[in-house]
Every structure is written in structure tokens, then in C-alpha cells.
């Protein structure tokens, strides 16, 4: 009886697992199949298996028809710059909030917590006007000049997303729980607050840095609503608006699936490499947030 129950549980899990995995597997497998094979395989288990004449034609077509490599490079630059800068500035603020006493600290902390409920959607429209008025400093004819606006650039996709109240709060919570003895000893030895941050707190905070890096990476790689507004030209376009435009004018499903697989690759790679960390960090973030 017990064994039968267990078998039933596994069968049910497999069925539900199929429902959750099908679209992703279908996308990847179809990207290697010619159009007719995709449709021929569609209604059987073959849809999610790498069987039949597999080809890279879809990928070849995508690279030919769309500047996907440029978008990919842009996304990598935007994501890595925002994540690296974010880790530094967010943890620095969290350090002063959690381990230093200063007047106004409580108000700043309350403001950071309050900002956590504002979704990006609520500010994109006014943010668009703001960045359209901000000048960029450029190099022209041998001198520094103020040029146009921030629109259509990489920095317009990076700088607004560096400081993040939610990540500050995650750092704050982690730092707050580190025993104070370490800082005190260092302080007696004459360490400055920055030295304490750099040589004591940061080395002890690997898990929270990993959590925030993963969450920030996901947030940045999947950016959509902001770049479709702030970036019109191709030069600074990231991958998600790129695939949306490709989807809008393409009828070959094989090519669309190739594009989709290609831009999902980095996320899947990070996800599979750090599954445990990934899942636990998102769970922890959800509970604490």
C-alpha cells in the first residue's frame, strides 16, 4: 500500500512537472527543427525530444535577419554594470544603516522600506521625461561637450537600476545580524568604517551578496518596459525588446524559438549552475520582503 501510494505521488509529480517543463523544452527542441518537423512532432512526446533531423538553420537565419549579437552584448554590458555597481552602493548604504549610528538613520531606513512597495511601472512614464532632459557628456571635436539626452544609450538602462531599496533591505537584514564584536575589535585597532566594511563585513557576507547578485541579474536581463520606452534605436537595444520586435514581423516559428532559446540561455545557465542557491535566495527574499 505504502509503495503504491509512493508510485502514485511520483506519477502525479511527473504529470505536473510535464505541464511546467513543456513550454521551455518545446522552445529549445523546436529551435533545432525545421518548420515542418515542428508541426509534425507537435502533438506527440516528440515535441520535447531532440529527435529527427536536427539543424542549426534557424539560428543561422536569426543571426542573419536580426542584430541579435549586438543586443546580446548590450544586455550583458547593462546587466553586469548594474549588478556590480548595485552590489557596491547598496551594500555600502546598508552598512551605514545597520552598523553605524548617525542622526537621520531611522528616517532613511523607513524611507528605504517605504520605497520597496513602489513598482517600476509606477514611475516609468515620468522617469522617461526626466532622462530626456538629462544631458550626456560626450567627446566631440577634441573637447568635452554636453550632448542631447540620455535616451537611446546604455547608461539610461543602467543608472536608474543601480540603487534598489529591496536589495538595500536584504543587505541591511544580513549585516544587522552579524555580531558586533568584530567591528569593535577592529575599531580599537584604529580601523576606519570603510576598512571594517571592506575587511570584516564583506568577507562574512558571501550568501547575501550571492542572493542579491542573482536577483539583480534576473531583474536586469529580463528588462522590458523601460527599454521599449527609453531606447528607440538599435545601437543600445537589449535582448527582450529585440525578440519582441523579431516576433512582431516574423512568421517562422522555428526562428522565433531559436531567438527565444538564445536569449534564455544565460539565465538557464546561471539557474542550472546555482539551482540550490537560486531557489533558496528567492524564497528567502520573498519571505523577508
Amino acid at each position: 500500500m505504502k509503495r503504491l501510494q509512493k508510485l502514485g505521488a511520483y506519477l502525479f509529480l511527473l504529470l505536473i512537472g510535464y505541464v511546467f517543463l513543456f513550454p521551455l523544452l518545446f522552445m529549445i527542441m523546436s529551435s533545432f527543427k525545421p518548420e515542418q518537423v515542428i508541426f509534425a512532432d507537435l502533438y506527440s512526446i516528440r515535441a520535447i525530444l531532440p529527435v529527427g533531423d536536427l539543424t542549426l538553420d534557424n539560428y543561422r537565419q536569426v543571426f542573419e535577419k536580426s542584430d541579435v549579437l549586438l543586443y546580446f552584448r548590450n544586455s550583458i554590458l547593462i546587466t553586469s554594470a548594474a549588478v556590480v555597481l548595485g552590489l557596491i552602493v547598496n551594500s555600502l548604504l546598508a552598512f551605514t544603516l545597520s552598523r553605524m549610528r548617525w542622526s537621520g538613520r531611522k528616517y532613511i531606513l523607513a524611507a528605504v522600506v517605504a520605497l520597496m512597495i513602489i513598482p517600476i511601472e509606477a514611475i516609468v512614464v515620468p522617469l522617461l521625461l526626466l532622462v530626456s532632459k538629462l544631458p550626456t557628456i560626450g567627446w566631440e571635436q577634441g573637447g568635452l561637450v554636453l550632448m542631447g539626452s540620455w535616451l537611446n544609450s546604455l547608461e539610461v538602462q543602467i543608472l536608474p537600476f543601480v540603487a534598489n531599496s529591496f536589495f538595500i533591505f536584504l543587505f541591511y537584514q544580513f549585516f544587522r545580524d552579524i555580531p558586533k564584536d568584530f567591528d569593535e575589535a577592529a575599531e580599537l585597532d584604529g580601523a576606519t568604517p570603510f576598512q571594517i566594511y571592506r575587511h570584516i563585513i564583506v568577507p562574512m557576507s558571501g550568501p547575501v551578496f550571492a542572493t542579491v547578485a542573482i536577483l539583480h541579474f534576473l531583474l536586469m536581463w529580463n528588462q522590458y518596459i523601460w527599454p521599449i520606452m527609453a531606447v528607440q534605436g538599435e545601437d543600445a537595444r537589449p535582448v527582450m525588446p529585440g525578440i519582441q520586435i523579431f516576433f512582431g514581423r516574423q512568421t517562422s516559428w522555428g526562428e522565433i524559438m531559436a531567438y527565444a532559446s538564445f536569449v534564455t540561455l544565460p539565465v538557464l545557465a546561471v539557474f542550472l549552475a546555482f539551482q540550490k542557491k537560486f531557489v533558496s535566495s528567492l524564497a528567502g527574499a520573498g519571505i523577508k520582503g
Binding site: N90, L92, L93, T96, A111, V112, L130, V162, A163, P193
Partner: peptide, 17 residues
């Protein structure tokens, strides 16, 4: 130190939120 370490993130939150 408080000022220098907290300013970048606070500036970002103020400017863009």
C-alpha cells in the same frame, strides 16, 4: 564616512524613484 558611504545609493534612489 557615513556621508560618503551612503550617498551613492541615496542619490540613486532620490534621482530615479
Amino acid at each position: 564616512y557615513v556621508f560618503l558611504m551612503s550617498a551613492p545609493a541615496l542619490l540613486g534612489l532620490f534621482m530615479f524613484m
